[in-house]
Design a binder for these strands. Structure first.
Lengths: 164, 164
DNA sequence: GATGCGATGTTACAGTGTATCAGTACCAGA
DNA sequence: TCTGGTACTGATACACTGTAACATCGCATC
């Protein structure tokens, strides 16, 4: 029912699906937005998996038992969720993860993508942002958004290895 | 013949196509790699445009006059070129740009993507890299590659605007 | 010439994303 | 109540991006 074959248990999995849903519910109430069934289901699918999911994966998971969710609908729900910072898009994978933090709009995030277990973590680093802003200013470039994704091995997978 | 409609003339255009070709030729000779006609043509197409080009755009440009270059071939050439640091992939655009610098393997690059004119510049910032390494170490993450792409407005376009 | 290898050509197909139109639910106002 | 507007969803079609598999060609080497 729930794939846990990958070596991964940093606590940001499974349990946070309900957290994410609760947070979404609150946020939509605050902003007077509709948290519809489709949006809820898409968020739940994404949040219940630490790995990034493609839009078609999500559509497949939500379909069945007389219900058919087309990829288009999933994309629309994902647009809504990303616009409101509940889900992030991983550009290097063409896939989506649920936001694990409550950091406002999702600016300044760093995504850590593990090559071994496929999981994704987020962090932030004000120091990186500072230096980046400085570099951009020096280049005469006015930023409006950025993506920063790092591939490598997560701590859990490094720990499991015999010879790091 | 050559589209210059976009506001963009920071000197990294057109002229550097020949530079890029010369650099590629040298590099392939050094490493004993084949710099074939297809690879040359693909690199030339990418280098003669400051904007990122999609693989199918490239295929279209190289086709005509009895020659037909399929997208697959372009992808293979692009794989070769990116592996050797002659071309970079822009993940947020699914497109490719020729490398404007001679910075070895292309690690530590920052891509500046202008929303207005569509051009792409590269910079590097050792400070950003330092801070990023620090943040990754703190997170217990061992990086093997990263992408850092910033969208915004380039200096040229900012200068052209009436009220910045 | 035979063999092996890398590069290319060709076809087919999988995966990703968007455009467009139609239908539905709901709410505000006449 | 009816009507019209808005937001969401369904559905189809299509464009774009990328890969798998196999055939062919050129070239170096035996």
């Amino acid at each position: 029912m729930h794939d846990h074959s990958a070596v991964h248990d940093h606590g940001a999995c499974c349990g946070n699906a309900t957290d994410a849903l609760a947070r979404a519910e609150r946020l939509c109430a605050e902003r007077d937005l509709q948290f519809t069934r489709l949006r809820r289901d898409v968020l739940e699918a994404v949040a219940s998996e630490a790995k990034p999911l493609g839009a078609y994966d999500i559509a497949e998971r939500l379909s069945g038992q007389g219900r058919r969710v087309a990829a288009v609908s999933v994309y629309r729900a994902l647009d809504f969720l990303t616009e409101n910072g509940l889900v992030h898009r991983i550009a290097s994978r063409n896939a989506f993860v649920s936001c694990g933090h409550q950091h406002g709009d999702g600016a300044g995030l760093v995504f850590l993508i593990c090559r071994t277990c496929g999981s994704i973590d987020e962090t932030t680093s004000p120091e990186v942002d500072d230096q980046l802003d400085r570099a951009l200013a020096k280049a005469g470039f006015k930023p409006s958004s950025r993506i920063l994704e790092v591939e490598g091995e997560c701590g859990a997978c490094l720990g499991h290895e015999p010879n790091p």
